[in-house]
């Protein structure tokens, strides 16, 4: 049966990138079968009814796959439910009378756009630096000419499941993006198709990551926060490939930066 929850919210409001920002308090009553974002929709409808500007937050699919949503809920990236993106979190995980603090991702590489919406373009820059396999449209051979061991395909898929939400960065005390970057690198590095560019890709992506994000010191908070439960093992694999790339690339490419 549906239960009604009375909630006290403390929400970060910030008018723009240069505004200092502040918390505002709201109280609301919602059904426990609402999703977390439906709760915010409802608060926004109330705000509009009161002639107050609604809270800005990014979201789109509301199915945990597009990676648009992402809120710090009581200090936890994506909130209390493990392996669950903000949009999939439902209010039945909360209790009547709860106080909930809602903040945006906080990281130097993710500047705040407004309220709870941040700019995650740095992730795209990492992909552009090498997160692909070079194959022009039309140049591919029959797909079954390159068998891929099932284990490799499965492991690549585990990495490729990353939705690019940025929770790993937000949860990391160093604002490092190693979980995201390693997932993107290992998705391709684990497949036969990805071998030709393996070391060049690793070097380029790791170095672009370092241009934007902090350094990993193995806290492991990223894996805890990740809605797709991407494993930190991929970071270890990335580090190994990166170390090799220093040798392989130097020998083969004479210190040239590859991209």
């Amino acid at each position: 049966m549906t239960k009604m929850l009375n909630l006290k919210l403390k929400v970060w409001r910030q008018d723009g990138p240069d505004d200092a920002g502040h918390f505002e308090d709201y109280s609301t009553t919602v059904a426990d079968d609402a999703s977390f974002l439906e709760m915010l929709d409802y608060v926004n409808e109330q705000l509009i009814a009161d002639n107050r500007e609604p809270i800005a937050f990014d979201h789109d699919c509301r199915e945990g796959i597009c990676g648009s949503c992402g809120l710090m809920i009581n200090g936890q990236a994506h909130g209390p439910q493990k392996g669950t993106a903000t949009c999939q979190l439902h209010m039945r995980k909360f209790n009547d009378g709860d106080h909930i603090t809602i903040e945006p991702w906080r990281a130097a590489a993710f500047p705040i756009i407004k309220d709870l919406a941040v700019n995650r373009a740095a992730f795209d820059r990492i992909i552009e630096s090498g997160g692909y396999i070079t194959v022009n449209t039309g140049a591919a051979q029959d797909a079954n000419e390159t068998p891929v061991p099932k284990e490799a395909a499965d492991a690549a898929m585990d990495a490729a499941a990353c939705i690019g939400c940025g929770a790993c960065v937000a949860a990391c005390p160093n604002s490092a993006a190693n979980l995201f970057t390693s997932a993107k690198i290992q998705h391709l590095n684990l497949l036969p198709q990805g071998q030709a560019e393996r070391f060049g890709r690793t070097k380029a992506m790791v170095e672009t990551m370092e241009d934007y994000f902090g350094s990993c010191t193995n806290y492991g908070e990223c894996q805890e926060a990740c809605p797709k439960e991407i494993s930190v093992d991929f970071i270890a694999m990335m580090n190994r490939d990166y170390a090799k790339s220093m040798i392989v690339n130097r020998r083969r490419l004479g210190e040239r930066k590859v991209g």
Partner: peptide, 22 residues
């Protein structure tokens, strides 16, 4: 058919059988 070829070459991790084929 060309779409599947293209996507496999790009590294789309399609489901595989034990023999490694799609």
């Amino acid at each position: 058919g060309n779409i599947i070829d293209q996507c496999a070459a790009q590294g789309v991790p399609f489901a595989r059988e034990y023999g490694g084929l799609l």
